[in-house]
Structures are given as structure tokens and as C-alpha cells.
């Protein structure tokens, strides 16, 4: 079996890192509110859109200027706050009032989906209407050409692909320190595990939920900001496919642990392009002609969702290997 090129591996690592952040956010909100946030994929696209609009403003002025590279800090940072606020809006304006009214899980899920549809359409509207200085029109633009090229030995890649994993690691370590070293971080973990006990102890559980939603949105914004350089074009509807990979990574991670989410997200994001390209190479070799299957890449995520739910619904973190083997036997029909 031939390994994909180093460039492709770098790309896969970058994609895996961004998905890890997305799964982390989804899992965080799931653990607090107990609702799978169907709008989480679109939150990433909001981050990508923020980046697109920023580049539209500054590219013309700063092209070639070293100052241009400060964009790699400014764009994710702005996306963090903008998308954090969007996610907070979803929680405060849509989900929390419904939770307090005692609406059941199905109602909450359709409300999250409703928010997603509203968000997608507002994004579409914005991309159509917002004045564009550089592109002329914002809708459907690709940012692939706006990423700085980086050459290392004989490997040529782009800056965002190298930065994404580093940023993901920094954010993860920061979050870990926040959750284990600060009183509020510990209170977050406590509220997630046992909200009623936390309330009795005087912890403001609702504030914890608010921070969780803001953080989840913020991380989606950062991921989306980097993804904007990787995806073919920035289009609002893309979130409806990204969400499948996010669910795949989160379910693989068990939907109950942020570390599981990071691992699951990275694995799904890294393996999705890698497995596809390797299968494509193998098929082409086997059939003796070029076969293209990359358009089916996302099916990998669906496969992960199905296999994990069938064999180990608790995901990686809740894995009991003996039980998994038993299930495999039952599903396969052996023994």
C-alpha cells in the first residue's frame, strides 16, 4: 500500500485538528444542555464567513505586506468572539427558554435545526448583500489562493495547514488548564456531572452553561476560520455536511467527555481524507485504471456513526473491549 503524499498527510492533520475543535464544542454543549446542536456545522461556516469578509477588506491593502500575516491571528480571534456570540444567542434566545418551559428532547432538537436553517439563510443573505471590496461578490468565493505558501525541504504546503494543529493543541492545553486549575473551570466540570448537587452547593449552573455555549461557538469559529482556507468555497449550505463529520467524531468520542471528543474528532477528520485516498489508490491499482472516489469522502463519517452506534454506542471513552467483541460476534453472526 502506497502512503499518500506528505502534503496530503499535512492536509489531513489540519482537517483533523479543526474537526477536533468542532467535536469538542459540540460535546461541551451536549453535556450541558443535553441537546445535539444541529447548528454546530453552520457555526463553523460563520467563522469561515467572518474570515472571508476580513480578507475581502484587508487583502487589497496589505497584499505582500508582512503585516498581512497578522490576519492569521486576527481572523480566528474575531471569529472566536463573533461565533461565540452566535452560539450564545442560540442558547439564550432559543434553547434555554424552551428548556425552562419543559419542552422535550424532540422539540429542542427541531428548535436547534430551526436555528440552523435561520442561520444558513441569514448567512446566504449576508453574502449576497454585504458590499465586497475585493471580490466583487462574496458568495461562493474560495480562499484557497489566499493562504500563504510554505515550503519545507521539498514539501510545499500552506501556512494555515501548519498553524491549525498548533492552534488546536494550544487551545486544548489552555482549556485543560482552565478546567482543572481554575475554580470556575472545576465548577464547570462539577455542573456538567451533577447539576443538582452543584446547585445545592451554590454554583451558578446557568452561568456555567452560558460559558459552555460561548466557548463551543468560539472554538467552532476558530476551526471555521482555518477551514475557510481549506474548503473549496465558502458557502452557507456546507454546514449541513460538516455536521455529519462533527457528529461522527463526537459519537466516536462518546458524547460525554471533552477529551474523547478531541480524540474522536481528530481521528475522524484525519482518517476521512486519508482512508478515502488510500482506498482510491488501492482500487485504481486493483482495477488497473484511475478511479475517483473522493466525492464520496464524507461517507466515511456516516460509516463511523453507524459502526460506533452498532458496536459501542458509548464511544471510545466508554469502551469495554470484551463487550465490543461480543457485539461484533453477534452482528457478524459468529458464535
Amino acid at each position: 500500500m502506497v502512503l499518500p503524499s506528505p502534503e496530503f498527510i499535512i492536509y489531513s492533520i489540519a482537517y483533523g485538528s479543526s474537526l477536533a475543535l468542532l467535536c469538542l464544542g459540540l460535546t461541551l454543549t451536549y453535556m450541558t444542555t443535553k441537546v445535539p446542536n444541529f447548528a454546530h456545522g453552520t457555526l463553523a461556516i460563520v467563522g469561515a464567513t467572518v474570515t472571508l469578509m476580513l480578507i475581502d477588506r484587508v487583502y487589497y491593502q496589505f497584499r505582500g505586506d508582512p503585516l498581512y500575516y497578522s490576519l492569521y491571528i486576527a481572523a480566528p480571534l474575531i471569529a472566536f468572539f463573533v461565533v461565540g456570540l452566535v452560539a450564545l444567542t442560540e442558547y439564550l434566545l432559543v434553547l434555554r427558554p424552551l428548556v425552562r418551559k419543559g419542552i422535550g428532547i424532540i422539540g429542542l432538537m427541531i428548535a436547534a435545526l430551526a436555528f440552523d436553517i435561520i442561520l444558513v439563510n441569514i448567512l446566504t443573505m449576508t453574502l449576497h448583500l454585504a458590499p465586497s471590496e475585493y471580490f466583487g461578490k462574496l458568495i461562493g468565493q474560495s480562499l484557497k489562493g489566499f493562504d500563504a505558501r510554505v515550503s519545507l525541504a521539498d514539501i510545499t504546503t500552506t501556512f494555515s495547514r501548519l498553524a491549525m494543529p498548533v492552534v488546536a493543541v494550544i487551545l486544548t492545553v489552555t482549556l485543560h488548564l482552565f478546567l482543572t486549575r481554575t475554580k470556575f473551570g472545576i465548577a464547570m466540570r462539577a455542573s456538567i456531572e451533577n447539576p443538582s448537587l452543584a446547585r445545592v452547593l451554590g454554583i451558578d449552573v446557568d452561568r456555567v452553561y452560558i460559558v459552555s455555549w460561548f466557548l463551543a461557538g468560539g472554538l467552532a469559529g476558530v476551526a471555521g476560520s482555518f477551514l475557510s482556507f481549506i474548503i473549496e468555497s465558502v458557502k452557507p449550505a456546507a454546514g449541513s455536511l460538516v455536521i455529519v463529520s462533527i457528529f461522527a467524531g463526537s459519537i466516536l468520542g462518546g458524547l460525554g467527555s471533552i477529551y474523547g471528543a478531541l480524540l474522536g474528532g481528530f481521528l475522524v477528520g484525519f482518517m476521512e481524507p486519508m482512508a478515502t485516498i488510500m482506498l482510491q489508490n488501492a482500487l485504481s491499482e486493483f482495477l488497473g485504471r484511475t478511479v475517483i472516489i473522493t466525492q464520496y469522502q464524507r461517507l466515511f463519517s456516516l460509516l463511523v456513526v453507524i459502526v460506533v452506534l452498532l458496536l459501542a454506542p458509548q464511544g471510545l471513552t466508554g469502551l469495554n473491549y470484551r463487550e465490543v467483541i461480543g457485539r461484533v460476534r453477534r452482528v457478524v453472526g459468529v458464535g
Partner: peptide
């Protein structure tokens, strides 16, 4: 629905959405 038919509603919703989305717009 097969993969999540024994699980809670939220898993069922996720699987049905993912399956539908990928079958229609990918397959």
C-alpha cells in the same frame, strides 16, 4: 434507522439526519 433504533431519540435523530443528508447529496 437500524444503527440507532435501540438508542435514545437524540441518537436516532442524528443518524437519520446524517444518513439522509449523505445519501441524497453525496451518494
Amino acid at each position: 434507522s437500524l444503527a440507532a433504533v435501540r438508542l435514545r431519540e437524540d441518537y436516532l435523530a442524528i443518524v437519520l439526519l446524517a444518513f439522509s443528508e449523505l445519501m441524497v447529496s453525496v451518494v
